[in-house]
Simulated scan of single mutants.
Amino acid sequence: MSPEATITRLVLWNVDLTLVDVSIVTRDAYADAFRQVTGRPLVKLTQHNGRPDSEIVFETLAINGIVAEDEHLPKFLDALADAFAARRGRLAKEGRAMPGAGDALRAVSRLTGTVQSVLTGTIKSNAVLKLTAFGLHKHVDFEVGGYGEEVYPKATLLQVAQGRAKAKYGVAFDGSNTVLIGDSVRDVQAAKIAGASVVAVATGRSLPAELHEAGADVVLGDLYNPAEVVAAVARLTPPVGRAG
C-alpha cells in the first residue's frame, strides 16, 4: 500500500529554537556570505526573530550601509548556503537539538495519517543540514515544506506548503488538518492568518504569555514530554470521516 494514500494530517515545524539551536554557526556563515558578496566585513547582523533569510539579508545589507540591488539576494543566499555547508561539521559540536525534539518528532510520526515537514525562515539546504546534524531529519518530508529563500510572508508560505502537500499526497490541507509548531509570536501570527492551528513552544525568545496573547491554541513550556505534543496535535486535528 502506498503511504501517500493514508495521509490526512500535516504538521509543520519551525526549525530554529523549536527543534535546534545553531546560532553560533549561523552567525559565522552570515559573516562569511556577507564578505563574499560585498567584499566588506560584517559589522552588524540583524536579529532573526522568526523572520525568513530573504528578509534578514536585505536588512543586514541596509544596516551595514549597503544599497541593495536586484542581484544581491540570490548571490547572498547562494553564498549563505555554501558558507553554511562548509561549517556542517561544527553543527553538532557547537549547536544542540532542543531538548525533547527527537522524541517529539518520533512520537508525532506515529500518529495515524501524519506527514511532518518544516515551515522555516531558513533556506532549504541549511534547514536540511541543521536537522540532519542531529538526526532529526528522519521523520521530515522536506519536499512539502516552506523555506526562507521563498519571498513570501510566513502565512502565505504556510499555504504554499499545504499546496505542496496536496500535490504530493492528494489531500486538501486546511485549518482542520494542519498544525504549525513554533516558538515565536511570528509563528503564531502566521498560523492564525493562514487559518491553521498552532502549538507554541516557549523555547525561543517569546514568553508563554506573549504566545497565548498572540492566539496560540496550545502553549507548551518545551518538548520534554512527547505525549503532550501528540495530544495537542491530535486534539487540534480530529479525524474526519473518509469520503465514500
Rank of each mutant, 00 (worst) to 15 (best):
H72N: 09
D28K: 05
L61M: 13
P52F: 01
A191D: 10
G145E: 10
V20R: 00
A104D: 11
F34K: 01
H72V: 09
V57E: 12
L180R: 01
L180W: 08
L207W: 10
A97N: 05
A155H: 15
R9T: 14
K93F: 08
A216V: 04
V118S: 06
D217W: 00
E143R: 00
A172Q: 13
T122M: 08
T18I: 03
Q47W: 07
D53L: 04
A190I: 01
G204M: 02
I7C: 11
S197W: 04
I56N: 07
V15K: 06
G175L: 03
A196W: 00
K166A: 15
V240R: 14
L77G: 05
T132A: 15
G215R: 00
V185D: 08
R186F: 06
D28Y: 05
Y30A: 01
G95I: 01
T178F: 04
D32A: 14
E71S: 11
A190G: 13
E59F: 04
K192I: 11
Y152D: 14
L220F: 04
A5N: 12
D217T: 02
E150T: 15
K124N: 08
L157Q: 11
K75N: 13
F34V: 09
I123N: 12
S54M: 06
E143I: 01
V229I: 05
A86H: 03
L91Q: 05
S184E: 15
I63A: 05
T46L: 11
V140W: 04
L73V: 11
A194E: 09
L111S: 09
E213F: 09
S184Y: 10
G65R: 06
